[in-house]
Every structure is written in C-alpha cells, then in structure tokens.
Design a protein around this nucleic acid. Sequence first.
DNA 1: GTTAAGATCTGCT
DNA 2: GCAGATCTTAACG
Length: 190
Amino acid sequence: MNEKIFGYDTVEAARGLLGWYLCRETEEGLVSGIIVETEAYLSEDDPACHASRGKTKRNAAMFGPPLTAYIYFIYGNYYCFNVVTAPEGRGEAVLIRAVEPVAGLDLMQNRRGAGCSLKNLASGPGKLCQAFAIDKSLNGHDLRRKPLFLKDNPDLPLNLSIKSTPRIGVSAAKEKQLRFVITGNKFLSR
DNA sequence: GTTAAGATCTGCT
DNA sequence: GCAGATCTTAACG
C-alpha cells in the first residue's frame, strides 16, 4: 500500500484519499467502497475542527499517528468516520463523507433498510457509518489492519478530476475550501 | 449538576 | 424545502 501521502499535509492527504478503497470485515461478510468525498479539518486557524480547543477525551484519537481512525457520535443518531493523516500530536483529520459502494451491496442494504437505493447507501457521513457498521468501538483503530482498513487503487485514472468546495454542515470557517470531491461522481452526498 | 450546541438524516409539507 | 428526532460531549455554575 502506498502510504506516502500520509504523515505530512492533511489537505494533500484529503485529496490523495479520493479513489481509495475503504474495506470493512465483519462476521456477516466483507463490504467495500471507493472514497469519493472527503473534508479536511486542520489544527491551525480552523475553529470548525474538534481539536481546535485543545486535546480532550473525545478527540484524543485525532492526535494519534497517521492512519488512526477517529470516530465520534453526533446528533443523537449518527457516527462520523475520520482518518488521521497528520504527524502524531498535531490533531488533524480527514472526514470521509461518501463512498461509492463496490462489494457487499446486499449487506449494506440490510443495514440501511430494505429498498434503499444504491446511491443512497453511503452518500453521507452518517449513512456511510451505518452501511459499514462503524461505531465507537473502532475509535483509535489502526487502518492498516482488519477489520477496517484502507487500500489504494492501482486502477485509478491519472487524470482524476478533483474539485474543492466549502465544507458542509459546519458553522465556523464557512469560507474555507476544504471539501474535496471526485468531479461528476454519482455517489456524492450532494 | 445542569445546559446548550452539534462535521446529520429522514419524513412530511 | 424545512423542521424534528435524539444523545453525547464539553463548558459553566
């Protein structure tokens, strides 16, 4: 696996993660998808980042080494899944907002509810975590290992078109262009 | 101990 | 298109 994009700059890693596979193994089987939408949360000059007011019990995983999972619970119902990509101790992360389903479609459909359309399976942070059965027990997990891991995509086109936009759902630092999407992909959250 | 706000989704109008 | 559900976390008294 090409880990060169990690451990340096969070924005570069957020762009670099587009097109990668996210894989999840459970007793029920394997599900996987291609990452099509990410957001960067920085430690400096970024009030929207959970780590902007220092280290707490909740965001401790954000300060871990690269390829650590940071998972938190929000709005009483949903989890959000982040990848730590900065050097240990910085407190930055990349939020995975949407994936394009690849394997284990029936399993995702079961978890998300029968009759759920393909493009509605994982097109949003909360939906993604439901489809991949991601919860707090995976907080701090090493994403190089099972049962939840990342994999680069050797078939990724070199001319992949990436667009940056303002982040979604944040009230602070609205002007920052820290959301990255694969242009024209059908499985974006919007 | 209490309170206010949040990196969302779904269902109804 | 919009408001409500629902609960964990952190800040404050």
